[in-house]
Design a binder for these strands. Structure first.
Lengths: 352, 352
DNA sequence: CAAGCTTTCTTAATTGATTAAGATCTTAAT
DNA sequence: ATTAAGATCTTAATCAATTAAGAAAGCTTG
């Protein structure tokens, strides 16, 4: 079972390689009889069809979009927000008849680097921390690139939301309800895997730009409401899991004075905070208000959150990449919306 | 800004193309000085690095796994069971440093066929109906293939569960609890998009093998318990959505006599049935027992279901494909497990 | 019958790399 | 000084296709 190529078939029939190629890709260039014979011999020899790699090389197109995400793929597929985005992106790719190549992050192997070796026509980069080496590798490929959420890269299209405004909207919601004792739990600030209380300097040096900006929105709204931000307990977690949210919830709710409202920068985390509240016998929203983010897992739980058009963003990213070079760099901010559900209410009793 | 290739750099420096290639892929073959100069000139000229397609052609490996799924990608990313599988598969790919290429189904375009053109080293095919043309296209590629859930393809590895046994376990559970008036709702039997009551002939001619087998399990358990299967109302839906499950739930619960237990072949559908029960003011499990399937969205809702090792299956599929030809065709059935939660209980009052 | 037009197939350039084997030149050891 | 070994670079084959342009033959038409 040696390799069968166009040439093998050509030799067998005493015709040229070009003729065999035409038999597969341009039937009108050939007599029906010869074409039939070629296809027949191809079948006999077990020819697998024109080699896609060679085809791709000659034609100069890969027929695929590359996708790079900050986390491990196991994580990506566990994150409802990411999934929603993938869904939109995959749909755009599907409509164009191209594949979506989900890439692992380069692991310093040098021998085989997934980004360097990816056979794609364009890249979508999502949620990478500032200065992540994978981004440089993507840019080195000189292919169309669109960045989603973070980091902003000058000269390339960017898709995201107005993070400071969205963060402020979440905070303002509970502040407007009358809450004065807030707590914050955030994931995805740093890459060091640290979980625990985070002071101002750690907050401000977060390496994920979008989360940094979102946090800035929390802070601004608090300060505009007259709160001392430095006094707002801020808990950072390393993984966006319900369990991590629960632990953070316990940490925040164990403080004295106990926060009456908690802001979480993902819905998954917020669900964990709800778990913690339940553990402690606190009633939501009577004893505690909770606000999530992204509206990715909030509906059933009745969670107040900020809705993001994740699927539309994915679809837009895909279309932008597939449109080719016609698309000029643009910085496109999608709308966000505060969705008020049953997890937020005015505080039960106000302190003077 | 013309195209820059290895040759461009070679010409500029008056060295051979091979030398430039070595500068990138085998630094030890070159003097440090020359290598530095080459990389410098490459930088100046804006060289994007060795072309991955050409590289792939020469090296004979694509660095990617192809994934084919029966539904549109928008659907795939909305199905918790599929996502769980993807997660496992993606993780296996990630561990091996290869990408995962999610392919759209060929759309009869002939001009550009995603399966024919996919630059991959192997294919994972999931949940395709019997005789779907995409399967033939995959097999024509003569690459390693593993099929998941359906259809079984002789000569290629197959991964799934013991569908008849799993279906029977779900049915037996409610039968053992004492239920005698069952109802069934299933999705993914046919491709014709039909929703409504399905008689025996339609049930048995379902084009998705796994679902056909699962249904056979339902039937066998019922008959073993002395029930007349033909009298069991069977509702078929076209989409695996909560809303479709709710409609099916209304149809089933509107019958006289009303079923006291409903079997759904997905958790998402089962959640819809719970919605319908809530609409009608029925209490679960007091007035109605519901069993889902796959344990993909069941936990929070307290749904009794059949747990499948979806991530393990995905990981196993990936490893099988990445292990190369060493892996002989095997038919591997993963364990399933009945997980009893709060959605099932003995019927409230028994009829003679 | 000759000119012109089609149809059908071939020639050969092109796509962009990798790598074994060979050619020089330098260095070290005898 | 001679020979072997090592370092450094080149030659040329190879991977598997696509496609514009050319050639040979068949067919029509005036």
């Amino acid at each position: 079972m040696a390799k069968v190529t166009l040439q093998t078939i050509a030799d067998r029939l005493g015709v040229s390689r070009a003729t065999v190629s035409y038999a597969f890709s341009r039937p009108d260039q050939l007599s029906d009889g010869l074409r039939r014979r070629i296809l027949e011999v191809a079948g006999e020899l077990g020819y697998a069809g024109p080699n896609p790699t060679a085809r791709s090389l000659r034609l100069g197109r890969a027929g695929a979009l590359g996708l790079l995400f900050s986390e491990t793929l196991a994580y990506a597929f566990a994150d409802p927000y990411a999934i929603g985005f993938f869904q939109g992106l995959a749909t755009a790719a599907e409509d164009a008849g191209v594949g979506l190549l989900i890439l692992p992050l380069p692991h310093g192997d040098r021998r085989s680097d997934p980004v360097r070796d990816a056979v794609v026509d364009a890249f979508c980069v999502m949620s990478l921390p500032d200065g992540h080496p994978a981004l440089a590798e993507v840019l080195a490929r000189k292919l169309p690139v669109v960045v989603v959420d973070e980091p902003y890269v000058a000269g390339h299209p960017f898709l995201g939301i107005d993070e400071p405004a969205a963060g402020a909207a979440a905070a303002r919601h509970v502040l407007d309800l009358g809450h004065r004792r807030l707590g914050v739990v955030m994931v995805g600030l740093h890459e060091d895997g640290h979980s625990g209380w985070a002071g101002p300097e750690r907050q401000e040096t977060a390496s994920f730009a979008a989360m940094r900006a979102r946090r800035g929105g929390y802070q601004r709204a608090c300060e505009e409401a007259g709160l001392d931000w430095a006094a707002v307990p801020f808990y950072e977690v390393a993984r966006n899991s319900r369990e991590a949210g629960r632990r953070a919830g316990h940490a925040l709710l164990g403080r004295d004075p106990r926060p009456s409202a908690i802001l979480a920068n993902t819905d998954v985390l917020a669900l964990g905070v709800l778990d913690a509240a339940a553990d402690l016998g606190l009633r939501v929203p009577a004893d505690l208000s909770v606000v999530g983010f992204s509206d990715s897992a909030a509906q059933e739980a009745g969670l107040t959150t900020i809705r993001q058009a994740k699927q539309e963003m994915g679809a837009a990213a895909g279309r932008l990449l597939l449109a080719g070079s016609a698309a000029r760099p643009e910085r496109r901010l999608f709308p966000h919306e505060l969705v008020v559900r049953a997890s937020t209410a005015p505080p039960a009793h106000r302190h003077p």
